[in-house]
Design a protein around this nucleic acid. Structure first.
Length: 423
RNA sequence: AGAGAGUUGGGUGAGUGGCUGAAACCAACAGUUUGCUAAACUGUCGUACGGGUCAAACUGUACCGGGGGUUCGAAUCCCCCACUCUCUGCCA
């Protein structure tokens, strides 16, 4: 969530940023934040003063009791009941205001970086770079949902039988391709200095709040109500929450973690013709990279993460482009997001395979993820993450782009991981 | 899952109603001493939110797993929850 002090100090800048997200009542929201925070402060001041008085009286009573002056002690004690009443009232007021403030802050998304273009939807995203020729395929090319049947490598019907729609079963070379990609992605990240972690894929409510999935997007997550645990929609949730309530030393930054996990998304109501096959699933595999950085270094880190992801796509020999998302298309918690899209030659469309974002302090403020600076004080760190990469659409585009009448050719970089060079 | 024991500052660990935001030791940091290292000595050494200040100094409140309660006053007593350990059971 946003920092109230930042809103106070840079009201105009934050307002302009939020307007890029098409939040029409942004001015009103920010003013409300400041008003509530003012109320919070003045209530706290009053409460603290009364509490201080009560504490003094209590000490006096203790002193008098010790001296055996019970009568005097009882006399002062009577005065405390009035103070206690007032404190109770102020206490209630304080929690109410604080709660209102928090709830309000939860509804305000992150302020976009100055480089983020204004815009309403995906149409307005800015294409930063295009790399690789889009292949033109032979007559009789097939979309991946046909290819997977032809070669019997991914089976949606079987998955539907044991789970439901959107839960494919990977078989034979299809399963081995998945495993090869996961290993490839992890090895590449390790070589870039990321530390591998294997987090739980069920997380508690607090973790959901920490990274911003809760309270607004609970409908997107599978929820085990008996235990109040959520299946993760992305490894970002457990990996970033590893550092919840942590104060690291400045020397430890940047923290770079990579993790492979399955991801689960309910994606309620978002099905249609354009999300056939592997394009959208309830369960899929993803390798995620997460960085915790010094605030001065986060945009540098974002660029390097973007370059890293592009390197993966180049090694996989996939044509891709990089988009800078516009205000209207950016995620709630992000300040700047690059989407990487791969061209899928049979579907003749771009598929999003990675999203790399800088959240600045939006997540770390909720997480209370701080570092101790050279000034010995604590400061909020910046958090970033990116998919590197999400498997299904990578698989889809490998299958589609590399199909030949004689089989599907695997990218060279995967041969040693796969143990075969074509399907 | 059942029974029992626990959860205190970066670590170990005192502390059963007021003098405890919390002993002591260790670690860390700064300094003194020292030819260097080591040792010794001195000092500093939690977080958050307020007030105060240009910034400090200074100052108020809260926090001893989390939440609630009793009390003039709670780390200390009571209740609920979470987690950890031991034993029993079950299990990859």
């Amino acid at each position: 969530m946003l920092l109230v002090n930042q809103i106070r100090e840079n009201y105009a800048g934050m307002l302009a940023g939020l307007q890029k997200r098409n939040i029409h009542n942004a001015a009103n929201l920010l003013l409300q934040v400041i008003t509530l925070d003012d109320q919070r402060k003045s209530t706290q001041t009053q409460r603290d003063q009364l509490q201080a008085e009560a504490n003094t009286i209590s000490k006096q009573i203790g002193q008098l009791m010790k001296e055996g002056k019970a009568t005097e002690a009882i006399a002062i004690r009577e005065r405390t009941s009035e103070i206690k009443e007032q404190i109770k009232t102020l206490e209630e007021q304080y929690s109410k205001v604080e709660e209102e403030l928090k709830t309000l802050l939860y509804t305000i998304p992150n302020v976009p970086h100055t480089s983020v273009p204004a815009g309403k939807s995906a149409e307005d995203n800015e294409v930063v770079l295009e790399n690789g020729a889009t292949p033109s395929l032979f007559e009789g090319k097939l979309p991946h949902w046909e290819l997977i049947k032809k070669y019997d490598i991914i089976d949606f019907d079987l998955g539907a039988k044991i789970s439901g729609a959107g839960f494919p079963v990977y078989k034979g070379k299809g399963a081995r391709l998945q495993r090869a990609l996961i290993n490839f992605f992890l090895d590449e990240a390790l070589a870039q200095g990321f530390t591998e972690v294997q987090p739980p894929i069920l997380v508690n409510e607090e973790s959901g709040y920490g990274t911003g999935q809760l309270p607004d997007k609970e409908g997107q997550m599978y929820h085990s109500t008996a235990d109040n645990l959520y299946l993760i929609p992305t490894a970002e949730v457990p990996i970033t929450n590893l550092y919840r309530d942590v104060i690291v030393s400045e020397a430890e930054l940047p923290i770079k973690n990579v993790g492979y996990t399955p991801c689960f998304r309910r994606e309620a109501g978002s099905w249609g013709a354009h999300v056939r096959g592997l394009n959208r699933l309830h369960q899929f595999d993803k390798v995620e990279i997460v960085q915790i950085t010094h605030p001065d270094k986060s945009y540098e880190a974002l660029e390097s993460m973007s370059a890293y992801v592009q390197g993966l796509l180049q090694k996989l020999e996939l044509p891709y482009r990089v988009l800078r998302l516009c205000g209207g298309d950016m995620g709630f918690t992000s300040a700047l997001t690059y989407d990487m899209e791969v061209y899928s030659a049979a579907q003749e469309r771009w598929l999003e395979v990675s999203s790399v974002s800088n959240f600045e302090t939006y997540q770390t403020n909720r997480l209370k993820l701080r570092f101790r600076g050279e000034d010995k004080k604590t400061h909020l760190a910046h958090s970033l993450n990116g998919s590197a990469l999400a498997l299904p659409r990578i698989v889809a585009s490998i299958l589609e782009n590399n199909q030949t009448p004689d089989g599907i050719l695997m990218p060279k970089v995967l041969h040693s991981y796969l143990g075969f060079d074509r399907i």
